[in-house]
Amino acid sequence: MTSTQSTYGQVHDVLVEVGLEPSEITSGAALRADLGVDSAELVEIVTELAPGSKVDGKVLKSVVTVADLVVFLDNLA
C-alpha cells in the first residue's frame, strides 16, 4: 500500500472478493449504510488487506466510507 490509488484498487478487489457488487463500490459509498458491511466484516476486510495488523477498534469506528478505509489502511502502512 504505497499510494492511495493502489490501496483503493486493493480495497475494491477485497470488497468484491467478500461478495459485494462491483458497481456499488465507490469511493464515497458508506460501508455500513450502502454496502451492508458490519463491524465484524470490516475487521475481516482490514485483516485481509493488512495481515497481522493489530486493528484498533476505536479508530476503526471512524471509518465510514470506502475512502475512509483507504486512508485508514494507508496510515497503517
Partner: peptide, 13 residues
C-alpha cells in the same frame, strides 16, 4: 498459532 489476529471477527455474533 498467531495470537488474537488469528481469531475470526465473526465469532462475536
Amino acid at each position: 498459532d498467531r495470537g488474537y489476529t488469528g481469531v475470526s471477527p465473526h465469532i462475536a455474533s
